[in-house]
Design a protein around this nucleic acid. Sequence first.
DNA 1: GCAATACCCGACTAAATCAATCAACTATTA
DNA 2: TAATAGTTGATTGATTTAGTCGGGTATTGC
Lengths: 166, 166
Amino acid sequence: MRLTTKGRYAVTAMLDLALHEGKGPISLADISERQGISLSYLEQLFAKLRRNELVRSVRGPGGGYQLNREPAGINVAEVIDAVNESVDATGCKHTGNCQGGEVCLTHHLWCDLSTQIHGFLSDITLASLVARRDVKDVAERQDRRQLNNMIVGSDTRPAEAGEAVV
Amino acid sequence: MRLTTKGRYAVTAMLDLALHEGKGPISLADISERQGISLSYLEQLFAKLRRNELVRSVRGPGGGYQLNREPAGINVAEVIDAVNESVDATGCKHTGNCQGGEVCLTHHLWCDLSTQIHGFLSDITLASLVARRDVKDVAERQDRRQLNNMIVGSDTRPAEAGEAVV
DNA sequence: GCAATACCCGACTAAATCAATCAACTATTA
DNA sequence: TAATAGTTGATTGATTTAGTCGGGTATTGC
Ligand code: FES
Ligand code: FES
């Protein structure tokens, strides 16, 4: 099992979409700026998210991505799954053949753990995240900062993610 | 966060020690054979387990490793921790500085997940694993097979882990 | 129709980590 | 004193991460 920036980025980006829902398509450039994630890397991730039908895209100017379902219908577990970061903690992908075709000593422990993690993550939807106080606070800060960057950085300076713009 | 063979091997090996407690020191060669883990790799893992005072060693012939505490006092979380596989799911090691010194959008989510996993794993002790039916079954199979290998393979053939010896 | 926007796609890469091996060493015991 | 078994450090091939780069294609506003 692994949970790295890939899965974290995917969830963060999807949450960003959920937060800005109803404002039309959101461009990856926007997400990149707000969340401090490389644009090219986002493109890779969204290719997978699209293949898994979690988002839909609109091309051309003013285009971008939108959630393909309502936020309440998308849970965190499937987002992580979509970018190929399995939430599976076993070494045998649940086949039980670690040890030369037979179940290893700790197989059941990892199965239990997997169930536990999957249960926890699949109970959390984008909608429930959007409703959280701490998420709202961070989102507000990010939106303010982005607005600031648009004004100050109107000389099209790349404007770094965590840059102190007051 | 990551949970790979390193952490799984460590738990498996510790469980093997717990299962054969009271029979004096257990050599890594024994564990290697029973669990199908490379001997040299086990050496690396046990160096860390020893540094974390989870096991104690006895050198010389008839030597090996023993649990440094009673099985009921060792939980799975600390074993995984000991081999440097943190159970932390955040990208900031709980410092909250993912995004240029500030908390990222999903920080709290990963904190919650970490707490969840840690709670689950630290509630499971080696003693509670030893008591499980499925563990007992696998352990018995392994012991039988090892005995078999000792007789059949008395020509000191390396005897592969999952080899069909019936 | 044409340029700008933004998604789309594949190849490529430096760095890190994994899983394992090898060699040389020291302590202990029969 | 020879065999056993732990101890340590270096090294390795394979894989994965976290990107970058360069070129596409579809859509829109002017
Ligand atoms: S983890 Fe499933 S058999 Fe080992
Ligand atoms: S995971 Fe902690 S700040 Fe991003």
